[in-house]
Write a protein that binds this DNA or RNA. Structure first.
Lengths: 334, 334
DNA sequence: CTGTTAGCGCATTCAA
DNA sequence: TTGAATGCGCTAACAG
């Protein structure tokens, strides 16, 4: 910038003023400065800019698990768009699986002076963020140890809707396949139970299946086992997109066709041999809301107490969830 | 840091030394400093650190299209992992569709003093990066106007393999559905042609279908049209994962079953009514290689002339690509 | 209106 | 071994 100043024969401050909107600079001078900028191909150094006291950087951090999961990818994309519109970049912390890795990643990001953090939190205490002086918005699930903004979907409602739908078809024995994550899955289960209670139907607890891992393979194995029991369920509610995949795979191999409802929509769900009924929400909106909220917090525009935004879930009927109870044992027509 | 210095009763320089490995500091002093650091919860300011002359920041930039496309998501995830292992963060520029937006995003990123750029380039000239003084690695396809490292898959080989496979089944009329991207798609087409030439089979140019847009809908429409012709193809090679989706959708609705081979694997490809044969490569490795290469460039370790890394493609037979020519007109058994 | 100056937080001299 | 001084590129406050 000093080069630009010399080139244009003006002072440093003047260049700075021009670069930042050119307020209070004579037109002619501004022209000269702009010319010099072009000639030298000058670009403002955002790093140095962010060093000034008070001034926050213009980047947000996004901390999440596996980008390969379309769910997270959607969040990333949406928040990226919103941030970009306000001239903010998004820094992705590399996140391993363990909570310890998450903490490290977050601190890394904080030390980079990001203006705010969006976090899809792992389990583990997040109290260490309390005094970091950076606004934080949690996405998809709340974190313990800190009271911050949170944007999520109506997990309990979604679980309830799924169960209600199956119960309405006359199903009485509905299995629920649960990933080992705490908050969201717990809520979905709660909704599931609530719907049963409302319908006056008792849940066979042996059909509440807690998986050791949250991947498709675990769900596949569990599904196979439960379907091969003497008293298999007539319907399955799968609590996660990846799990649904495993459930379907097992069912396909077994040639069995219980009703299936999955939580979260997924690509190609409508093109499978029998299109999959799901409870879905607007994932992109999750990311957008989070970014918007964080931007407002970072700019100081929003000083309300921590907000809690809950997005609704809706049922998308495609076929797999509308199978009657007596079709459960049937061999597929393949 | 100055607070830490005061707290520990030492000079500023000493604290800095401790923070950076503590070389040349008496053990006792170092202890005191570390204690002060803990008590104050001090964290080094990476921004200020990067301001020092010569010192590059410890973040890489990744510029790509749509994270919602699993192809890009895989690249992002993989490069993130590699970068993270070296303590680098990854900044994602928000990228719209237009080349102009891409340029803006890149310059934004450069002004943030990233240590290097990974770019999945859009069309348009990238010569403006030439003098930016930042190492650049292009991913998936080369850019014009600049000679830089490039990591990509063997598009031509993949196109050839797909066509060869179909030709071996006895197909003579193979349609190819092309997305409107230049480099990669062009190469795939070239491989497709080459295989035909080698087999001594002439291509019906009306089966070389150039789509106006690269989405599933366009492919669906085109597939419907070509299959309803008087002389439909007996096989279809779809040049992109999203296109394959559209092709399959159209075929399902039409109840037709020509052989289908897609370029790039995708989730659930093996679970569709007839599992989809694809030509696939290790996308994650694409991201990993790019990150590794960029890291080496950024650190100055690697000063070779621009490299060109090409990853192989392999055929994954699943069924759709093994259908004989005479099954093309058949109605599906649905 | 415009030039000058003082830090921002840190790593790195240079002395002591 | 350590403390103090310097400057990275920029903006804001203050003179002129």
């Amino acid at each position: 910038m000093i080069d630009v100043a010399r080139r244009a024969g003006v002072g440093l401050g003047t260049v700075s003023r021009v670069v930042n909107g050119g307020h209070g600079v004579r037109d002619e001078t501004a022209q000269r400065v702009r010319a010099a900028i072009d000639e030298l191909g000058f670009q403002r150094n955002e790093v140095a800019r962010a060093l000034r006291p008070g001034k926050k950087s213009t980047s947000l951090a996004l901390v999440l698990g596996d980008l390969t999961n379309p769910f997270y990818a959607s969040i990333a994309k949406a928040s990226l768009e919103v941030a970009g519109q306000s001239g903010f970049a998004v820094v992705l912390g590399s996140v391993d699986e363990d909570p310890e890795g998450e903490k490290r990643a977050i601190q890394e990001l904080v030390s980079r002076q990001v203006a705010g953090l969006m976090i899809v939190p792992d389990q583990g205490d997040h109290a260490f963020l309390q005094g970091a002086g950076v606004p934080v918005v949690f996405v998809d699930r709340p974190a313990t140890g800190i009271d911050a903004d949170i944007v999520m979907v109506d997990n309990e409602g979604g679980g309830r809707i799924a169960a209600e739908h199956l119960l309405e078809q006359g199903h009485q024995r509905i299995a629920i396949i649960l990933a080992p994550s705490y908050y969201t899955i717990g809520r979905r289960l709660r909704g599931f139970r609530r719907a049963h209670r409302a319908a006056g139907i008792e849940i066979d607890e042996s059909l509440v299946i807690q998986l050791p891992e949250g991947n498709a393979e675990a769900a596949e194995k569990a599904t196979r086992e439960v379907m091969l029991r003497a008293d298999p369920p007539t319907a399955i509610f799968s609590s996660t997109n990846f799990l649904t995949e495993g459930v379907l795979r097992a069912l396909g191999e077994l040639g069995r066709e219980p009703a299936v409802v999955g939580f979260d929509d997924f690509r190609l769900a409508d093109m499978l041999p029998t299109p999959v009924t799901v409870v879905a929400s607007d994932i992109a909106e999750l990311g957008r809301s989070a970014a918007r909220l964080l931007l407002d917090r970072a700019s100081g525009t929003d000083t309300r107490p921590p907000q809690r935004i809950v997005l609704p879930c809706a049922l998308i009927e495609r076929g797999s969830g509308e199978r009657p109870p007596d079709s459960a044992g049937k061999r597929s027509a393949r």
